[in-house]
Amino acid sequence: MEFLSQVAAVAWKDLRVEFRSREILYTMTFFAAMVLLIFSFAFVTREGVVLPDVIPGILWVAVAFSGTLGLSRAFDRERESDTMRGLLLAPCSRTAIFLGKAIGIATFILIVEIVVVPMTAVLFGAPLFDHAVPLVLILILATIGYSVVGSVFAAMLLRTRSRDVLLPVVLYPILVPLLIAGTKATAALLEGAGDPTAVADLDAAYFWIKFLAVYDMIFIATALWTFESLVIE
């Protein structure tokens, strides 16, 4: 119980700092929207339509890219006035700090998704909300995995030189299964979009949702197990 309140305290601190300045949320959302626009230059065909096959990719690249932006900024904040030291000195377990940070990041990414997913649906005419329940499951599970893995690496990078360039270098190779699963699950929901006789491949979508759940569990366990020894001093 005490542990949970420590986690909540760390997460709430991050969210409060953010809701006062809204710096991370505004920049992340803007950047994600910009990624969508840049993709539209590449993928909108001469007839003015977008091939449905590329829409999941566009969505997940936008989420993945803006996520790193938020991650590095959220941890940079702790570095600026050396508050990370304060956090680590606080009388609570390191695991609680880690989980609190991860929850904060997950909230930022989810808020960005609330904007970006409808934008994708509207701008590219994708019937993303025909199957809202699996879509929400996919987004939540992928966001959890992303923020857990991201928080470990962003925390480790705090004391490293050239943090900002190294974060994507270390993060994306680990995120590959998550991005494949997210993209494929979204693609399964969009299967046969625009063709009234076709139906979405819900079995495939739920298969990837289960895969995402397994990915999350494995990496939450790995992160909890290694965080203490990886992020010290």
Partner: peptide, 10 residues
């Protein structure tokens, strides 16, 4: 340490 962490996660 970061490299070791990357290797374990990898």
């Amino acid at each position: 340490r970061l490299a070791a962490g990357l290797a374990i996660f990898g």
